[in-house]
Simulated assay, not measured.
Amino acid sequence: MTVLVLNAGYEPLHTVSVPHAIRMLVRHVAEIHEAEQDSNFGLFPRPRVVRLLRYVVMKWRYGSQPRWSRRGVLKRDDHTCAYCGRHATTIDHVKPLSRGGARTCWLNTVAACGGTSRSCNARKADKLPEEAGMRLRFAPRVPTWGELHSVVVCP
């Protein structure tokens, strides 16, 4: 279970684990904004939403693009294979590393289905998509911070 963290101005920042939220309460960094009914975590009610007591400036988030990560590529592509549209479990380098493609570049990586010898990632291997007879269903792009750190508020 995760806990939504709000900035002092009530803007959603991110989510944390319940123990992390309790540590924030103990250190007097945050206060409980919403808690579970009849459920405690030690001395505290189990929080669903906490609010920071001091405002956190996030201009770092808007000054540069997000750092590349495998998890980010999968989230950006909604765990959908860029070649066939099935559920993606791995990433593929559009221009293979063996041909000088960048390892950690948003524009050279897409989500792909993998794990079997018939998966798109295995079929493409170290070829360009055109050489493997495959085409991208969508072009790789640099995601926004909001896409990677979307916060879901449960009712």
Results as ranks from 00 to 15, higher is better:
127 K>H: 14
123 R>F: 03
104 T>L: 14
22 I>A: 03
83 Y>A: 11
12 P>Y: 05
42 G>Q: 07
120 C>Y: 02
83 Y>L: 10
110 V>Q: 03
59 K>I: 00
121 N>P: 03
38 D>E: 14
62 Y>H: 12
76 R>S: 03
111 A>Q: 08
92 D>S: 13
85 G>H: 13
113 C>L: 12
22 I>E: 01
81 C>H: 09
124 K>Q: 01
51 R>Y: 01
86 R>I: 03
49 V>Y: 10
19 P>W: 10
128 L>Y: 15
93 H>D: 00
44 F>Y: 15
42 G>K: 12
129 P>L: 12
98 S>I: 02
14 H>K: 15
97 L>R: 15
106 W>F: 11
98 S>H: 04
54 R>V: 03
122 A>S: 14
96 P>I: 09
24 M>V: 01
28 H>D: 06
88 A>Y: 08
100 G>D: 01
128 L>D: 01
104 T>W: 13
110 V>H: 03
27 R>F: 05
117 S>H: 13
79 H>C: 10
28 H>M: 04
67 R>Q: 11
116 T>W: 10
104 T>D: 14
62 Y>Q: 07
20 H>Y: 05
20 H>V: 07
112 A>P: 07
108 N>M: 09
60 W>F: 10
45 P>D: 04
24 M>R: 15
98 S>F: 02
84 C>W: 03
48 R>M: 07
126 D>M: 15
86 R>K: 12
106 W>T: 04
25 L>E: 00
47 P>L: 12
45 P>Y: 10
106 W>D: 05
18 V>D: 02
120 C>V: 01
129 P>S: 13
96 P>H: 13
69 S>I: 04
35 A>K: 14
107 L>E: 08
110 V>P: 02
51 R>Q: 07
74 L>K: 12
71 R>Q: 08
116 T>M: 09
61 R>G: 02
112 A>K: 10
119 S>Q: 04
18 V>M: 09
106 W>K: 11
124 K>Y: 02
123 R>A: 06
52 L>T: 01
25 L>K: 04
59 K>P: 00
46 R>I: 00
15 T>F: 08
73 V>H: 11
91 I>H: 06
96 P>G: 09
57 V>L: 13
94 V>M: 09
90 T>C: 09
46 R>W: 01
40 N>H: 13
21 A>T: 00
40 N>G: 06
25 L>N: 01
112 A>E: 00
101 G>K: 13
47 P>A: 11
49 V>F: 06
73 V>C: 10
71 R>E: 03
70 R>M: 07
130 E>Q: 15
51 R>I: 00
87 H>S: 09
106 W>H: 11
19 P>T: 06
123 R>P: 00
89 T>D: 07
44 F>L: 10
74 L>Q: 10
